[in-house]
Design a protein around this nucleic acid. Structure first.
Lengths: 203, 203
DNA sequence: ATTACTAAGACGCGAGTAA
DNA sequence: TTTACTCGCGTCTTAGTAA
């Protein structure tokens, strides 16, 4: 049933009535014409669609259904998650950036700790379900000594017990498969881990 | 069934195994223990979950399912999805397949254009949220000269201004990270791009 | 062409129960 | 406690057909 609503939504039935015969509908959704007809009757009874000479239109009830489903999925895909990754060697760039007051100060204010000048870089395994940009704290970019430094998003997190943050520069040099972590202390030392070891991050 | 996958996903079963008895699962999803058990067996058969002493874990197949559903909803709620990828060398197979009337004819009918005999292959970056199988147009397989040719799904799209389609063979030789594109014209020539260049696709 | 009825089979679900 | 079997009922789906 949801399948049908989603299809009609895609066809634009939320905005204006869509002309679709039960035969066409059945074909597109790989079901019989008879079943498509029956489902439309059912959906009409539930007040989720309205039919007229102009075609089929989705009602607010149907839209609410779909929106709920979407929010559910969104929350798990974009929301809190546990990331797992292997420690990889950084380019020592993180240490440099974190020594700049332009990043240092706003990070301290936003996160509540003075970041240790160095990042722990993790190569994430599997499909990294990173949080959405909206859910983090945005640290704007700045100009300094004739160089421009880009903005970044910071996501407070917990790295095997140590409170820290995941950083996502707006102009990142490495793809989404790499996570850059900071904390008030040296993560490598505190965790007693070395390159290639696994680390878990709770967002 | 999707209900169960979504619930397990929310419980974090994508990252690590989750301990849940069938009784608990049934209660949380308002279904009988027996039914929860049956569903888990089914999902295990389909390769969507794995069970061990440590609990239940979602596999990549399940994640793809959820991702498709999410993509479908996202595309209608947030607008068209945009895929980005780098041009990679094909095996010249696409040109051969597109020369066969068995593919050529139904593609022309479905898409409204005569496909140029050649595909543009993109290596997609990040986690490619490809559309679900249902939302595309299915081109059935066929037999020809004692060889059998598999079916494929076609998704109309726009490749930097050029209307075309994304093809997904049922029996694909390359994974979900590669997108095969066709258009009425030679995409490489029209876009004036070469191997390694980035291309944007609006679905 | 269209929609939708009926009949028959497939499938899903819960109760009872076993291990 | 746990999982998972069988059985019976009820819903969903398709085929055939009418209008």
């Amino acid at each position: 049933m949801n399948k049908i609503l989603l299809f009609l939504f895609k066809e634009g039935a939320a905005q204006q009535p869509v002309r679709l015969s039960t035969t066409q509908l059945g074909k597109r959704l790989s079901m019989s014409q008879q079943n498509a007809s029956r489902c439309l009757i059912e959906l009409e009874k539930e007040g989720k669609i309205e039919r007229s000479e102009k075609g089929i239109r989705l009602t607010g009830i149907a839209m609410e259904d779909l929106r709920h489903l979407y929010h559910d999925l969104k929350s798990v895909f974009e929301g809190a998650a546990i990331l797992k990754g292997k420690i990889v060697a950084g380019l020592r760039e993180g240490a440099y950036y974190l020594s700049l007051p332009g990043y240092r100060k706003p990070l301290k204010e936003a996160l509540g700790f003075e970041p240790f000048p160095g990042t722990l870089n993790l190569k994430l395994n599997g499909n990294p379900a990173l949080p959405s940009k909206e859910s983090g704290i945005f640290i704007p970019g700045f100009e300094w000594k004739n160089r421009s430094f880009g903005g970044l998003h910071a996501y407070p997190c917990n790295i095997e017990g140590i409170p820290g943050a995941l950083l996502r520069p707006v102009r990142t040099h490495h793809g989404p498969g790499i996570a850059e972590l900071i904390a008030p202390v040296s993560l490598k030392k505190k965790l007693r881990k070395k390159e290639g070891d696994w680390v878990e991050v709770k967002l």
